[in-house]
């Protein structure tokens, strides 16, 4: 659905355009049909520039991309016809009604049944009762819902969501997230930039961590394992320093750490190794209170990746 190869964007800035600013460097990725793809990165990382390039809004300086089977740079109009975009700011016509806003975009996207499409999305997003009201009187959440409707009005194959829940209150953010899940279940391809890592973990099949260039790309679960391994904590009634050495000697363990009354063991396959560790500890006289797995959040992975990338660059 989306395939990029060495996509790069350099902006020329300054009065005489004498300074070059590298916004996106050598981005190569593939997003499959029906996939929800998270594009994560700090402010100024080039996420919006990437979305703008992929939606045919700005030209890449070099590299190629295919969106929905169309060649970026040569078939931009077809690309714009095939994708929907939720921009960072809803950008609605405030003096016009919700219905009028959607009608304008339905006409610009050459939707065959304009009133049908407008009514469908106004109802689906709970805006039917307010359809004749000026958008200027809408809450942030309602505007965002209307912007989502606008992005979907022409039934695009691919949806680009640029920070879809930024600035929304928790209830509005949940409504938008629930709707994204609904779109996911419909099998739409979604390319989403976000700062909200919990949101990315909940919604995305794969995430890319990006800062000017791609740092890493995988599913949140694989990234977690790749970065930290799988770590299991054994809570003991009391601690004997010998027990840590005993567990460390087992060939299946990748590392053991002793903190207070806890043994934190890094494992490749906890499901098969945990019984052996429990048996070893019990035979050595340890009393195990409970066992649990430490799950690193996507936030920890993200911070680790971004910071190690910065250290690498330094």
């Amino acid at each position: 659905m989306i395939k990029t190869q060495g996509l790069t964007k350099v902006f020329k800035i300054g009065k005489k355009q004498e300074t070059e600013l590298l916004a996106v460097e050598d981005l190569s990725l593939e997003v499959d049909s029906g996939e929800v793809f998270g594009f994560l990165g700090p402010n100024g990382a080039g996420k919006t520039t990437t979305v703008r390039m992929l939606t045919g809004l700005i030209r890449p300086s070099s590299g190629t991309a295919q969106i929905a089977g169309f060649e970026l740079g040569r078939q931009d109009t077809q690309i714009r016809r095939s994708v929907g975009i939720l921009t960072e700011s809803p950008g609605m016509y405030e003096r016009l009604s919700a219905e009028k806003n959607l009608t304008i975009f339905a006409n610009l996207y050459d939707v065959p049944d304009v009133p049908g499409a407008v009514n469908k999305y106004l109802s689906m997003l709970g805006l039917w009762e307010r359809r004749y009201d000026a958008v200027g009187s809408f809450s942030k959440g309602m505007r965002q819902k209307l912007a989502v409707a606008r992005a979907l009005i022409h039934e695009p194959q691919i949806l680009f969501l640029d920070e879809p829940t930024t600035g929304l209150d928790p209830e509005a953010a949940k409504t938008v997230r629930d709707f994204i899940e609904e779109l996911k279940s419909e099998g739409r391809t979604i390319f989403m930039t976000t700062h909200n890592l919990a949101e990315a973990e909940r919604l995305c099949d794969r995430v890319a961590i990006f800062k000017q260039k791609l740092i890493t790309l995988d599913s949140p679960a694989n990234l977690r394992q790749e970065m930290f391994g799988r770590r299991v904590v054994f809570h003991l009634r009391e601690m004997n320093p010998l027990w840590a050495d005993l567990v460390a000697q087992l060939p299946e363990t990748d590392g053991v750490e002793s903190v207070d009354n806890k043994l934190i063991v890094t494992l490749q396959d906890p499901e098969s190794t945990n019984p052996l560790i429990i048996k070893t500890l019990v035979q050595a006289g340890a009393e195990i209170q409970f066992v649990g797995e430490i799950r690193h959040s996507l936030e920890q992975i993200y911070l680790e990746m971004v910071h190690s990338n910065e250290r690498g660059q330094a």
């Binding site: 714009r80 016809r81 700011s89």
Partner: peptide, 14 residues
């Protein structure tokens, strides 16, 4: 001011 140009430019309009 309403930042409505970007969604407009994202349509197939030339």
């Amino acid at each position: 001011t309403t930042r409505s140009l970007e969604p407009l430019l994202a349509t197939p309009i030339t």
